[in-house]
């Protein structure tokens, strides 16, 4: 056997292993998608089918008609978009103070802000629930959104990025008659697009995929978010697998699109720390 043939066989094997592994990882999603195109008779068949006979759209139509799924999707979009924008705004402002200003108590305030990362949401969820109930915000967007409007992680991430902005930029801006607050809007934020992108993808996905908080504070169909809606489908009387999977695919599409387009930002954001090690 020549070296070339050896090399070729090795490469083919490595491709094969990767393809098999990738297939196993993505299998649940592909399977959900193909069941979503099967009428009940086919979905309940044994042995289970992998590929639908035809491109049956009935499940999607039924899911849209029988469950307020569009309402769930709308709710989740409203909440996720406002939380994402809110986190970007509050984090940009706080990070600006921490990166560019000297003021009394700066280090201690920074430490206090970061310490919020040490308090897991689950550990304070009872008290937060009682607060929101007391405020009369059960089943409201306010209740879903407000607790998440800032993020220590976001502040941290943007501050680290701001610290890399060279001094010359400020001096140049100052010569142009730029005020400090304008410097944030006109120079710092545009320069920080990569970091803001990471934060945006991350907070959108986190909010879209949120489960425990909306489960606790929403109880009406018109305020439920997608994740709660989909788990309700699971326990609904119909128990039509095709219908349930059509629902799952509809709520997965936004996360998958954002993941695919924001993958680089997301991975870069996550790795910014790891790469140094």
């Amino acid at each position: 056997m020549t070296d070339y043939v050896k090399w070729l066989i090795k490469r083919i094997l490595l491709y094969l292993v990767n393809i098999i592994l990738a297939f196993i990882v993505i299998f649940p999603i592909i399977y959900a998608m193909s069941v979503s195109f099967m009428p009940d008779s086919e979905a309940f068949q044994y042995p289970p089918r992998l590929i639908p006979h035809s491109f049956y759209l009935g499940n999607y139509i039924e899911a849209l008609n029988s469950v307020p799924i569009l309402r769930f999707i709308l709710n989740s979009f409203i909440v996720s978009i406002i939380v994402t924008i809110g986190q970007i705004l509050t984090s940009s402002l706080a990070a600006y103070a921490f990166a560019f200003y000297e003021f009394k108590g700066k280090n201690i305030i920074f430490a206090i802000f970061l310490s919020t990362m040490m308090i897991p949401g689950e550990a304070i969820i009872i008290a937060n629930y009682l607060t929101i109930r007391q405020l009369g915000w059960l089943n409201t967007y306010a209740g879903l959104i407000l607790p998440y409007l800032s993020s220590a992680l976001g502040i941290f991430l943007l501050r680290q990025f701001y610290l890399t902005i060279p001094k010359d930029y400020y001096e140049a801006a100052q010569l142009d008659g730029c005020k400090r607050s304008e410097f944030l809007i006109k120079v710092v934020i545009p320069l920080s697009r990569p970091a803001i992108g990471s934060l945006a993808v991350y907070s959108f996905l986190m909010t879209w995929n949120q489960y425990m908080w909306p489960l606790l504070i929403t109880s009406t169909d018109d305020m439920r978010t997608v994740q709660i809606g989909i788990s309700m489908l699971q326990w609904s009387d119909s128990q039509s697998f095709g219908l349930i999977m059509a629902g799952v695919i509809m709520i997965l599409i936004p996360s998958i699109i954002i993941f695919i387009f924001g993958q680089k930002q997301l991975v870069d954001g996550l790795n910014a720390g790891a790469l140094k090690g």
């Binding site: 402002l93 200003y101 003021f103 305030i109 802000f113 407000l146 409007l149 890399t164 902005i165 060279p166």
Partner: peptide, 29 residues
């Protein structure tokens, strides 16, 4: 590299929105 603005009220205003959220939904609970 980094510019350090002097101490005045401005930085506290920037911190205020996050501080309110953290106080209400993390520290208070």
């Amino acid at each position: 590299n980094v510019i350090r603005f002097k101490n005045d009220i401005e930085p506290y205003l920037y911190l205020f929105p996050s501080a309110i959220i953290f106080a209400t939904f993390v520290f208070y609970p």
